Simulated scan of single mutants.
Amino acid sequence: MFTGIIETMGIVADARPGGGNLELTIQSPLASELKIDQSVSHNGVCLTVTSVEADRYTTVAVAETLQKTNIGALRPGQAVNLERAMVFNSRIDGHIVQGHVDGTGVCRSVEPQDGSWVFRFGFDPSFAPLIVEKGSICLNGISLTVFDIADDAFSVAIIPYTFEHTNIRHLQPGDPVNLEFDILGKYVARQLQTQAKPSLTT
């Protein structure tokens, strides 16, 4: 479980396919504090630490993860947003994030706004019921507030701190991003879906 508040960025040191999986070696200042079997959010994807050595650690993304996220596109030298699992005795500054990405979206535009930036993203319209105006979304692991919602797109405003301390500053139109919709919205949508089904009892 995460909050969507990025702790730091790591650098992909190596990306090695193995069968249907991808083993990643990440160089990060967090490495010395990690232990094997810990969960770490990588661009919003929860992956398990499999080994740690000095300032690097390894983790493995399985085929299911590669199919639903942009993790498979990572290459050596690229920056990745990192967050360790939340601690429940401190403030939750973002929102509850599972690290279970629902799918990918696409950056449509980036507009400077005299000190901030507005990013526009497209997404699969089937997820439209899970997003609300001024609600939360997790984008590449970053907890953000959405606005200007359409059936297949939304915008987010990025402040200078987020721009400088996450890899969102590298995004260009056409780039894929990982999206995790708010878990509360998923439960509500599921409940409504269940209630809408005809009863089998007489």
Rank of each mutant, 00 (worst) to 15 (best):
Q98M: 12
S28P: 01
A196R: 13
H95L: 09
A54R: 14
H100W: 09
R16E: 15
V40C: 06
P112V: 09
V87T: 08
V177Q: 02
G10H: 03
Q98F: 07
P76H: 11
V101F: 05
T104S: 10
E53P: 00
G44I: 05
R56F: 01
M9L: 11
V156E: 01
G99V: 06
I92D: 03
D93A: 14
G174F: 12
E133I: 11
L171Q: 05
S28E: 01
R190V: 01
Q191P: 00
I36V: 15
Q67N: 13
D124E: 14
D151W: 05
A73I: 08
L66K: 08
D175V: 02
S143Q: 11
S41R: 02
V52Q: 01
L82Y: 04
L179T: 00
T104G: 07
A79V: 03
P160M: 06
I92P: 02
V177N: 01
Q193A: 13
D114Y: 04
A150Q: 14
G20E: 14
A153Y: 04
G18S: 15
A189Q: 10
G122R: 04
I6T: 09
E111C: 12
T3Y: 12
S32D: 10
G99I: 06
R190H: 13
P76E: 10
V52I: 10
W117M: 07
I183N: 02
P125F: 05
F123A: 00
S109N: 14
Q67F: 09
N167A: 15
I131C: 05
I36G: 00
G122V: 08
C107N: 07
D102N: 13
F181N: 02
R56I: 01
P125W: 04
L171N: 00
L144C: 09
V101Q: 02
E7D: 14
N89R: 11
D93C: 09
A128C: 08
Y187C: 03
Q98A: 12
G185C: 12
L74Q: 05
V60I: 14
P129V: 11
E7W: 01
P125N: 05
E111A: 15
S90A: 14
G4R: 08
F2G: 02
Q172K: 15
S126H: 08
N140P: 08
P17Q: 12
N81F: 06
L200E: 10
N43I: 04
S51W: 10
K68V: 14
A31N: 03
A85K: 03
D124M: 05
S32P: 00
N140G: 13
V40Q: 02
A31I: 05
D14H: 11
Q27I: 04
K186R: 15
V97I: 14
F147C: 10
A196P: 01
T162P: 04
G20Q: 13
Q113K: 15
E7V: 04
H42R: 07
R16C: 13
G141M: 11
M1Y: 07
C107Y: 01
F2N: 03
E111H: 11
G4T: 11
N43T: 05
T202W: 10
T58K: 06
V52W: 00
F181A: 04
G72N: 09
E133Y: 15
T194D: 12
S199P: 00
T50P: 01
I137A: 11
V97N: 02
E64L: 06
T202L: 12
R75H: 13
I131K: 00
